[in-house]
Design a protein around this nucleic acid. Structure first.
Lengths: 114, 114
DNA sequence: CAATAATGTAAGATAATCTAACATAACTTA
DNA sequence: TAAGTTATGTTAGATTATCTTACATTATTG
């Protein structure tokens, strides 16, 4: 659990993100202002993005092209995040169920939510 | 074939690489000078590295710690690269063999080496 | 029409990187 | 042992990249 892959490591600065996405730096910073994206910062305050962020930005760009407004996109993204959490929890339950069937286990060490 | 994953995309600048590897920028540039590593460059001549490069640098650092010299490490890396090419070719042959067994095919379109 | 949204652009400041050079300690080698 | 080589540090000056803030503009929306 919680193994952080390369995809989620925030190691890319804004110039490269701009090239990868085709968005201007102005746009990328603006989407942050509208809370669609959340880069890390270095000590020097340089924004750092992950490949996941790049993917997200491309999705954002598509939605903008479709005429959506930033606050709508934020809502969508937030509800998707919820969705993901839920389905992860469901997956966990499923797995737990299967383990119980196979080994007849009760939940031991780990508390139900973590 | 030749799908380039995030791992091989050269999007990381030297400061971050330094943090990820624990090596000084001086060391990283020196290993380039000794041809152990081959970053891309932006138009502005900023060096750009991939996660694979980061992994390679960690291996290099370990070998240096073991007392190897850069030219020895380069030889090792080069022969490993050869090795990889060979084993990939072997894998290809194996697969080809299996396909032939299953479907009775001869090599059609693709020339033997590419 | 007045406000908001999305984006461009410019200016000045700061951070990050580059190259080149000099220094040095630890090895090698002739 | 003297002279070169290796690996690394450090410094300096130049250049590139990024940051923030502000002002401008066009389109959209209430």
């Amino acid at each position: 659990m919680s193994t952080i892959s390369y995809k989620d490591k925030k190691v890319i600065s804004i110039g490269v993100v701009s090239e990868l996405t085709g968005l201007s730096e102005r746009q990328i910073r603006y989407y942050e202002e509208r809370q669609l994206i959340h880069p890390d910062r270095t000590k020097g305050r340089t924004r750092m993005y992950s490949f996941s962020d790049v993917e997200l930005l491309v999705e954002i760009a598509n939605k903008i092209e479709d005429g959506l407004q930033t606050y709508e996109i934020r809502k969508i993204n937030e509800s998707q995040k919820e969705q993901k959490t839920i389905s992860k929890e469901k997956l966990r339950e499923e797995i737990r169920g299967q383990l119980n069937v196979r080994f007849g286990l009760m939940n031991r060490n780990e508390s139900k939510f973590k």
